[in-house]
């Protein structure tokens, strides 16, 4: 009996020691930089000021320019896009946002609907909320002493509201892009289930859920369009595919992409934002906040953005 108690005690102490070490390591790796800083900074936005929340992977923060949406329509939008975002992570951003915001429209970029959302990723993600080392472990490559001296605290306000500014131009070939097809690429069932849950969550909070597809010659095709259309019809939500509407959007694949059609550059993003602005305006549920004192910071950020743009364009 004494032997068993001693073995159990040893095992417990060993596990506790391990948890302590994981905690210490987590502290070490998170000092480098807050992960997904641009998206997470939504928590620093003044309460109840964001009307449109945009979720998705790199397609999102490459194609929606919230400050331009503000300039054109007075709509306050925020891009919570992160590289290779999965739907379970998008759902987390949604819930995080609704803690101090009440967006009227939630837009989901559809590229991530086709990214397998394996249970394994979810478990690692959950683990990383307790021990961030599981998420940031690869930072050992870039850690230096100064990272421990100058620690980050909080997220701070994100001036571009999640948009990732890029003026690079690398033209795309459009061979085979959006060729007609009756075939359907079925969205993984787990992802369909996530969209239904997000829809339910939005419905309960009076937000309108919209699916949209960013123009991309690399990631999008008719089979995927058909797949998303079926899902959107099935759950009764709007689906705006800018690939189908590329003529209306005015995409020029010779100058509007930064990496051969995978992502938009600023020029493409500006066109996408212009089109989405018209669409959002047409919904008739969003208020033009321009001139409202509460939102004067948006004008300051817009001026700074436009100045930067003018300067870069000249160069």
């Amino acid at each position: 009996m004494k032997d068993i108690v001693s073995k159990i005690a040893r095992a417990v102490i060993f596990v506790m020691g391990l948890l302590l070490l994981l905690y210490g390591l987590s502290r070490m790796v998170v000092v480098k930089e807050k992960m997904d800083q641009h998206a997470n900074a939504i928590v620093s936005e003044p309460e109840q000021t964001i009307d449109v929340l945009v979720l998705g992977n790199s397609e999102t923060y490459s194609s929606v320019v919230p400050l331009k949406l503000w300039e054109q329509k007075g709509i306050t939008a925020y891009c919570c896009g992160t590289p290779d975002q999965r739907l379970f992570y998008a759902k987390e951003f949604l819930e995080k946002t609704f803690k101090n915001q009440s967006p009227l429209v939630v837009m989901i970029e559809t590229d991530m609907l086709y990214n397998g959302s394996a249970k394994n990723d979810e478990v690692v993600h959950k683990l990383s909320t307790v021990f961030p080392v599981f998420l940031y472990h690869n930072r050992w490559k870039t850690l230096s002493f100064s990272d421990f001296v100058h620690r980050n605290s909080g997220y701070g306000v994100e001036e571009n509201k999640g948009y990732s500014y890029d003026l690079t131009i690398v033209p795309a070939s459009t061979d085979g892009y959006m060729d007609p097809s009756e075939l359907v690429e079925v969205i993984p069932k787990r992802n369909q289930e996530y969209i239904r849950q997000i829809k339910e969550y939005c419905d309960e909070r009076g937000a309108l859920l919209v699916l949209y597809s960013t123009p991309s010659t690399v990631n999008w095709n008719m089979r995927r369009h058909n797949g998303v259309e079926i899902l959107a019809e099935d759950i009764g939500i709007d689906y705006v595919d800018l690939n189908i509407l590329q003529a209306d959007v005015g995409i020029d694949w010779r100058r509007d992409t930064r990496d051969k059609g995978d992502h938009m550059n600023y020029w493409g993003a500006n066109k996408v934002t212009g089109y989405l602005g018209e669409y959002l305006h047409s919904l008739g549920i969003l208020v033009d906040h321009r001139g409202d004192e509460r939102y004067q910071d948006w004008d300051i950020y817009l001026d700074s953005f436009n100045q930067q743009l003018a300067q870069d364009s000249v160069e």
Partner: peptide, 21 residues
């Protein structure tokens, strides 16, 4: 014994090729 085991586990956690990327 425990130092070796902790080193082994932490080596997998930190240097393992898993997660984003």
């Amino acid at each position: 014994r425990w130092i070796v085991l902790y080193a082994l586990i932490l080596c997998i956690v930190v240097f393992g090729a898993y997660g984003y990327g």
